[in-house]
Amino acid sequence: MSTSTDSDLLRRIAAGDEAALRLLYERHAGWLLLRLNRRCGNAELVAGALQDTFVAVWQSAGRWRGEGEVAAWLWGISVRRLVSALRGRPAIDPLGEEIVDAATDLVQSAEDELLLGVEYGDVGRALRSLPPELREIVQATVIDGLTTKEAASLLGIPQGTVKSRLRVAKVRLRERLLPIRDGRI
Rank of each mutant, 00 (worst) to 15 (best):
M1A: 12
S2M: 07
S4F: 05
T5L: 03
T5C: 09
T5N: 07
L9Q: 06
R12S: 10
I13E: 00
A15W: 05
E18S: 11
A19H: 08
L21C: 08
L24F: 04
E26R: 14
E26G: 06
R27W: 10
A29H: 05
W31T: 13
W31P: 10
L33T: 07
N37P: 01
N37R: 15
N37W: 10
R39S: 13
A43D: 14
E44N: 12
L45I: 12
V46D: 03
A47H: 11
G48R: 01
A49E: 01
L50W: 00
T53W: 00
A56L: 11
A56I: 02
Q59A: 15
Q59T: 04
Q59G: 01
S60L: 07
R65A: 10
E67A: 10
E69S: 15
A72M: 01
W73P: 01
G76M: 03
S78A: 15
V79P: 02
R81Y: 03
L82W: 04
L82K: 05
L82P: 06
A85K: 11
L86N: 06
L86E: 03
R87S: 09
G88F: 04
G88C: 06
R89C: 12
R89A: 14
D93P: 09
P94Y: 08
E97C: 07
E98H: 11
E98Y: 04
V100R: 15
V100D: 08
V100A: 12
A102S: 12
A103L: 11
T104L: 00
L106N: 06
V107L: 13
Q108H: 05
S109D: 02
E111N: 03
D112N: 09
E113I: 04
L114H: 07
L115S: 07
L116W: 03
G117P: 02
E119S: 14
Y120R: 08
G121N: 11
D122G: 03
V123W: 10
R125W: 05
L127T: 04
S129D: 11
P131R: 12
P132G: 06
L134H: 12
R135P: 08
Q139A: 14
A140C: 10
A140L: 12
I143N: 11
G156N: 03
P158D: 10
V162S: 03
V162F: 06
V162T: 09
R167T: 08
R167I: 04
R172S: 08
L177P: 06
L178N: 06
R184N: 00
R184C: 00
R184Q: 07
I185D: 15
